[in-house]
Design a protein around this nucleic acid. Structure first.
Length: 555
DNA sequence: AAATTATCCAACCGCTACTGA
DNA sequence: CTCAGTAGCGGTTGGATAATT
């Protein structure tokens, strides 16, 4: 790309180059007063001069370049040009899958430390990595997808744990993990979701189209402010497809995130509950596990994306203006992660499991078949939904309130909510909307519970869901904005022992939500547990759905 | 085919940290 | 200790190109 520019520029000077005098603006201190320095794209001739200069004098002392070589560029510009384009051993061309994955992993650990990331990618520049990240971030932003894949979060978590175990690890990390952390398994939120009716406000469920379902199921919530409600459906589908084009593997296991709150409290809450969910719209999945990984780190509520410091090692918590959930599309498929939940569910539901259909992992190559994959997923979703609904009606018993409520909610959720944003999106969003509505935030405009119909087990006044105290406290104590912290330390263990985890979770959630909600939550959790076991997806689902709500006070 | 929109990426800008006088 | 110069980093911008309407 750059070469084409330069080739073009060889024949003519750009506007910047001709009429953009830069007389030592302070940023380019090398030029003396009155010297007109060129700006804009570099020409081949300028490159040659700079290369020649570096060969003779070596790197550094960039402000001397203009003096010694006659190049009318500020030292800063020279350094940048050299570092990003001229220095030897620069790797040109698109990022490889390995590089993409590494970038994602590094970003999960480092945040927007492009230079540090570049150090791990020989031949790549910080600018290159930054551009790569930002462009894909935007894509995911539009698609409403989370920042990081569960695998990355898990890896970051495991690394942080191992480091903590070995050498005490990062103090901040320890604080987060040990002192101020509460790990909340998926089930809690799943249960909350199952009992979404408890929450007074529910998301608006505008459209049930396949594209919308996939779109939102893959990562968005109507609460996600970063997704413009005005975006045309077709456009969104296109974006999703384009987005998926980067995927070589798992798409279905992505985790959407909530983030849409504008005020402080809601913002914190949003981050605290920066939940991501499995995209699988399968009711079974929802019943058994609901919450996926607390993805994304940097998930903030202002609808922006950024950078921030997600890693435990981060010394400070950066809260840039742009934050949003993100997951790299690049190559999760290469990770040794469990198969997408949907696949597991499909295998469970469909007999025999289709070999041609649901394997979007293999079918979603980087460059083709994306729309097909989306359509196929929609199809699969529909099939799974029907199947589960059928099963639900057969398996539930009148006497088992918890179980039936779970099943019914899962079932009706898709039918009535029409917002398959995520298997458990409603609960979380509802929970947040609770906080927000009570605090008079921007979520006041959220549609009331009336939008839901028969599926609601019960409805409660909003003031019961979250008290002002809770609103004040929860946001402060919860922090899931960082991948590492989002991944609680022991979700894997939790995967193998639901009951134990449930009790732990119950305690944690009780602490979080307060006594008012505790009993309710316990009931829901119990229902989720029963449902999970009944569906035979217990550990399987858990393994596929690492979800941790880590509440912590950042140092 | 033209207009519009989205994407990519090189370059710029502002800021901070470091170093040496 | 202060200050100036320098290097580097991260955010942002703007232009070219591609894709879409």
């Amino acid at each position: 790309m750059s070469h084409t520019k330069n080739e073009r520029e060889d024949g003519m000077l750009s506007k910047d180059q001709t009429d953009s005098p830069l007389a030592d603006d302070g940023n380019c201190g090398g030029a003396g007063a009155g010297v007109v320095l060129k700006k804009g794209p570099w020409t081949s001739a300028e490159d040659a001069i700079l290369i020649d200069y570096v060969k003779k004098h070596g790197e550094g002392n960039w402000n001397a370049v203009q003096k010694h070589s006659g190049l009318f560029r500020c030292g800063k510009s020279c350094r940048l040009r050299w570092a990003n384009h001229l220095r030897p051993n620069l790797k040109k061309g698109a990022f490889t899958q390995e590089e993409e994955q590494l970038i994602i992993e590094l970003h999960a650990k480092m945040g927007n430390k492009w230079a540090r990331m570049a150090a791990h990618l020989p031949g790549r520049t910080d600018n290159e990595i930054k551009n790569y990240w930002n462009t894909r971030i935007k894509r995911r932003q539009r698609a409403g997808l989370p920042l990081y894949p569960p695998e990355v979060c898990l890896q970051a978590l495991q690394e942080s744990h191992s480091s903590s175990a070995v050498n005490g690890g990062d103090k901040g990390s320890q604080d987060i993990l040990q002192n101020n952390s509460y790990e909340i398994p998926d089930v809690i939120f799943d249960s909350l979701k199952a009992n979404q009716s408890v929450l007074p406000y529910v998301p608006e469920l505008p459209d049930m189209s396949t594209s919308s379902m996939l779109m939102k199921g893959l990562g968005s919530s109507q609460y996600c402010s970063f997704i413009s409600p005005t975006i045309h459906r077709q456009k969104r589908l296109r974006e999703s497809a384009a987005f998926f084009s980067g995927y070589t593997g798992v798409v279905k296991n992505e985790c959407p995130l909530f983030e849409h709150f504008e005020d402080d409290i809601s913002d914190k809450a949003s981050r605290s509950f920066g939940l991501s969910f499995p995209i699988e719209p399968d009711p079974t999945a929802k019943t058994s596990q609901s919450f996926g990984v607390f993805s994304g780190s940097h998930a903030l509520s202002n609808g922006n994306f950024s950078a921030s410091e997600p890693a435990l090692e981060a010394v400070k918590l950066e809260l840039p203006s742009l934050q949003y959930p993100e997951t790299e599309l690049g190559n999760w498929g290469t990770l040794s992660c469990p198969p997408p939940l949907l696949e597991s569910v499909d295998a469970f539901i469909q007999s025999p499991p289709p070999t041609s259909g649901v394997e979007s992992d293999s079918l979603s190559p980087r460059n083709s078949g994306l729309l097909d994959a989306l359509l196929h997923e929609a199809k699969t979703i529909s099939s799974a939904k029907n199947h589960v609904s059928e099963k639900s009606s057969n398996s539930s018993t009148p006497g088992d309130i918890a179980e039936s409520s779970n099943f019914n909610v899962c079932e009706t959720e898709w039918e009535n909510c029409g917002e398959p944003l995520s298997p458990m999106g409603h609960s979380a969003t509802s929970l947040f909307s609770e906080c927000i509505s009570a605090s008079g935030s921007s979520l006041d405009e959220q549609p009331p519970a009336e939008n839901f119909t028969e599926s609601h087990v019960k409805s409660e006044p909003g003031d019961r869901v979250l008290t002002p105290e809770i609103q004040r406290e929860a946001p402060i104590r919860l922090d899931s904005t960082r991948p590492d912290s989002l991944l609680a330390s022991n979700w894997l263990e939790q995967a193998s022992g639901y009951d134990k985890d449930q009790s732990i979770m119950t305690d944690a959630i009780a602490t979080l939500l307060g006594d008012d909600l505790t009993s309710e939550y316990k009931n829901m959790a119990a229902g989720a547990s029963i449902a999970s076991q009944a569906w035979g997806l217990g550990s399987c689902a858990w393994n596929n759905m690492p979800a941790v709500c880590q509440m912590s006070e950042l140092p």
